[in-house]
Amino acid sequence: MIPGDFEYYRPNSLDEAVQLLATHGDDARVLAGGHSLIPMMKLRLAAPEHLVDLRNIASLSGVSESGGDITIGAMTTQTELITSTVLSEHCPIIRETALLIADPQVRYCGTLGGNVANGDPGNDMPALMQCLGATYILQGPDGMREVEARGFYEAAYFTEMNDGEILTAVRFPTPAAGHGYAYKKLKRKVGDYATAAAAVLLSMKDGNCVSASIALTNVADTPLYAQAASDALVGTTIDAAAIDEAVALAEGITEPASDGRGPAEYRTKMAGVMARRAILEAKERAQ
């Protein structure tokens, strides 16, 4: 498993990176943590002629909270997400999710930006970003633009991102204090993609659900934001009936492939089981 050769660039600024992409067009790819791209290159499923490594661009890393928003630089690694005190305090579901991604070594390298931008439906962060209502910040030759995570994914490996654009950061509203959350992932072993996974974020007031957000991983060729399922919880006490309805609605939007993780029917049902468990845990955690 040997990758094809390429020209390697390590720009020191975002502008320089964007310029390199503009110069080399289709033949260029951005290299972040490399743990999706390099295996693809080794299998020769990807053969970019120019690789633009973003690791020297300091502005692309880091987590910050201000003005009711959390912003995470695209080059922030999974390990940095796990150890971020800002996230542990304000948005612990990110740590919970990141810990279920791949394995320790991969998490030292794998980045949030790489995970959300390459469009692999097996990745966990895209559904979580949809759950959080995140916005992706893209920088291209024509400047900066923003795309909602819920509208970003078109099909497996196809996204709203244009050639020549670089995802620089994600931004999402800081979840309300006292919110409940859970990311539940069924997988065959450490390092596997999800058979099905569900991210749930919700807030309770006086025993009633005042907001809910559910998204699903790896049960379609894109992450799925489960709008109807989310809505089914709002205004309820999240009783058995409401959960049943939300689960059924969540299952209803899945279109999983059959693979080694199980046939489509199973994966749909597991999306439901994961959603149910995540809802229950989120409710439990909500204050």
């Binding site: 390697y8 390590r10 490399g34 743990h35 390099i38 295996p39 690791r55 070594q105 030292y108 390298c109």
Partner: peptide
């Protein structure tokens, strides 16, 4: 950091 050196180009370790 613990890194799997099969999934890193040597140039990345500059």
């Amino acid at each position: 950091r613990s890194v799997k050196s099969c999934t890193l180009f040597a140039v990345q370790a500059q």
